[in-house]
């Protein structure tokens, strides 16, 4: 693996609610190298979006990042940076695109306004030069007659086009890291595929590290180099995509993979993971997946498994690893 440009260690994010402190992200660690793609997979409420926002420093009260966490971009620590310095990191070193393209662009501002301001927030550059860069960025994401389209309002674009504009905007300042929070979920399948390959290409061209947040394993399979599976605020399994998909270690990862519909299993009822994701206010003392797990034993219900490294750059948190790969030498 190339040197990590995004290095997250022991990241915890909690929210103060009426029911008490809810830890949405619980001391997770991962790193992404330049040009690498990490798929962050999990169900709704597993903490994957909060992780993305935390990397940008966009956690608002009542949410709070544990001050012992560490998020480094190009070796620079972001935790504890004052707001003005964080602002200069956002959009410059790390950018983000969101799930719903219909709402990520301001409906009352023209596209050029919204793109040019993103450049001029970080660089002293003339309006004209910024406009030229915005135009090139639009062309790069495949928007025809970019000059004209710059003067349009978001309402004049389709969903796929708007997501392209958002991607172009996010990549304007050639960020080191791009966090993509399910950016294709709201789009047609055909558009999804186009956008996926465009983002992949743009990121590899510029060496941008990509964190792709999704619940869709089939997206991760074709896109990511590594995958991290999140459950109830923790990363339960992490490793190279092909290894994890072929031989998952954690039963939850296996369950997720098993529930992807496939052409090869015609006529067979779709597999599903029984039960629901646990409420974060009321987690069981042991492994949070134990109540839904077919392999759970007493130790699972009482003790939280620690992350264990396995061979081939893999790791998992499970007392009863499936497909029993060799634990890496300590």
């Amino acid at each position: 693996m190339s040197k990590a440009v995004l290095d997250v260690k022991d990241l915890s994010v909690s929210f103060r609610t009426r029911e008490g402190l809810v830890t949405a992200v619980n001391s997770i660690s991962f790193s992404v190298g330049a040009g690498e793609v990490l798929g962050l997979v999990g169900e709704s409420g597993s903490g994957k979006s909060v992780t993305g926002l935390a990397v940008l420093g966009l956690i608002d009260p009542p949410g709070e990042i544990d001050p012992r966490s560490s998020i480094k971009i190009n070796e620079r620590e972001l935790i504890g940076l004052p707001e003005e310095k964080l602002r200069r990191v956002r959009g410059k070193d790390v950018a983000m695109i969101f799930q719903d393209p219909m709402t990520t662009l301001n409906p009352v501002l023209r596209i050029d306004t919204q793109m040019i301001e993103a450049i001029r927030a970080h660089e002293k550059i003339s309006e004209k030069a910024a406009r030229e860069r915005a135009r090139q960025a639009l062309e790069k994401v495949g928007i025809p007659s970019a000059d004209e389209r710059l003067k349009a309002y978001p309402g004049q674009f389709s969903g796929g086009m708007r997501q392209r504009v958002a991607i172009a905007t996010a990549l304007l300042n050639r960020p080191t890291v791009l966090v993509a929070d399910e950016p294709t979920t709201a789009l047609d399948v055909t558009i999804q595929a186009q956008i996926l390959s465009e983002v992949q290409q743009l990121c590899s061209e510029t060496g941008t590290a990509l964190v792709w947040i999704t619940h869709d394993l089939s997206v991760v399979a074709g896109l990511a180099d590594r995958v991290a599976v999140m459950y109830a605020g923790r990363i339960v399994e992490e490793g190279p995509v092909s290894a994890v998909l072929e031989a998952p270690i954690h039963p939850y990862a296996a369950g997720l993979i098993g529930s992807v519909p496939s052409r090869n299993k015609r006529g067979v009822p779709l597999a599903q993971i029984r039960g629901m994701t646990p409420s974060l206010t009321n987690l069981p003392p042991g492994c949070p997946f134990a109540p839904r797990c077919d392999y759970a034993t007493d130790i699972c219900r009482s003790t939280m498994p620690e992350p264990t490294p396995y061979e081939g750059g893999r790791a998992a948190r499970c007392h009863h690893p499936l497909s029993a790969p060799t634990p890496a030498a300590a």
Binding site: R87, G91, A118
Partner: peptide, 14 residues
């Protein structure tokens, strides 16, 4: 709104 979050993610000033 999401567009305010996106604006913040772009690094715009408050």
């Amino acid at each position: 709104q999401d567009y305010v979050r996106f604006a913040r993610a772009k690094g715009l000033s408050y």
